[in-house]
């Protein structure tokens, strides 16, 4: 299950005074089972790019191929089942009378019996860490964090092979955020789902993903492993981004004790590195 974009260009509202190139000549390949982060300034084209991956937007030029299917082709339904997108604030898309019915919405177009559907829904609810007894409640009486999980369950229930999340933890408290990232990491590992995470938080990106794509003004500015991308702080800052805070701390510490390796980008890796260094000194 791979994503390939070739010379992808997208023009927003062509033929009007508001015409603007949102994406310019994007070339990209994401392989099966990868956990990819996309970062970039507001308006850098992140959201436009991910909407090409399930055919919501069609390329103005170039093409996008998902698992051998061109997104302009006929298999749109199948494509949208394979590629699940969780948009920003997905709780705003809830509409049914009960949580159960809302999660079941994506399954309606599939040929499943009542029992099979129920089984899938229960599984999805369990994955996102919700209790079964909310299934018969109205989605509008849940808390913000619960609503968001219901919305994510509504995407997971279709068993996508590629899961794309646009700022899935925006506006949540730290605990809610950790829980959501917890089950995203789990399904990535256990089911081998390709996950693409769009985020503004460098900390989250550094902690979770293997590979980062940096977008700037509709083009791919950088694309590589965490260590490669965050090592070039100057370049990230020149396009209005930054490295994780702990990277700045390690850089400063390096001026005091030159022996440490400053190329760590998560708090836990920094802790390990410092402990190693301190022990080495003590011995």
């Amino acid at each position: 299950m791979s994503i390939i974009a070739e010379n992808l260009t997208y023009i927003y509202m062509p033929g009007t005074p508001f015409e603007r190139a949102a994406l310019r000549d994007i070339n990209l390949k994401i392989d099966e089972g990868e956990f990819v982060g996309i970062i970039g300034h507001t308006g850098s084209g992140k959201s436009t790019l991910i909407q090409h991956f399930n055919g919501l937007l069609k390329p103005t030029e170039g093409r996008v191929v998902i698992n051998g299917m061109d997104t302009t082709g006929k298999e749109l339904k199948e494509l949208r089942r394979l590629v699940g997108i969780v948009f920003q604030y997905p709780e705003h898309q809830l509409f049914e009378e009960t949580v159960y019915k809302d999660i079941a919405f994506g399954l309606r177009k599939q040929d499943l019996t009542e029992e099979e559907a129920r089984e899938e829904i229960l599984k999805a609810v369990e994955v996102v860490g919700l209790n079964e007894d909310i299934l018969e409640k109205s989605p509008f009486e849940l808390s913000g964090g619960q609503k968001r999980r219901v919305a994510i369950a509504g995407v997971l229930v279709m068993k996508p092979s590629i899961l794309i999340l646009d700022e899935p933890t925006a506006g949540l408290d730290p605990r809610g955020r950790d829980e959501i990232f917890g089950f995203i990491t789990r399904i990535h590992k256990e089911m081998g789902i390709t996950v693409i995470l769009v985020s503004h938080s460098m900390e989250d990106i550094a902690r979770l993903v293997d590979r980062v794509i940096v977008m700037n003004e509709g083009t791919i500015e950088m694309d590589g492993r965490i260590e490669e991308v965050f090592a070039d702080i100057g370049r990230l800052e020149s396009i209005g981004l930054s490295a994780p805070q702990v990277a700045y701390l390690m850089k400063r510490l390096k001026t005091i004790c030159p022996g440490i390796n400053e190329k760590v980008y998560t708090v836990s890796a920094a802790r390990d590195e410092l402990l190693k260094h301190l022990k080495g000194k003590g011995a």
Partner: peptide
Amino acid sequence: KAQAARGAD
């Protein structure tokens, strides 16, 4: 778009 991504037609 969000509903289309969930299979709405």
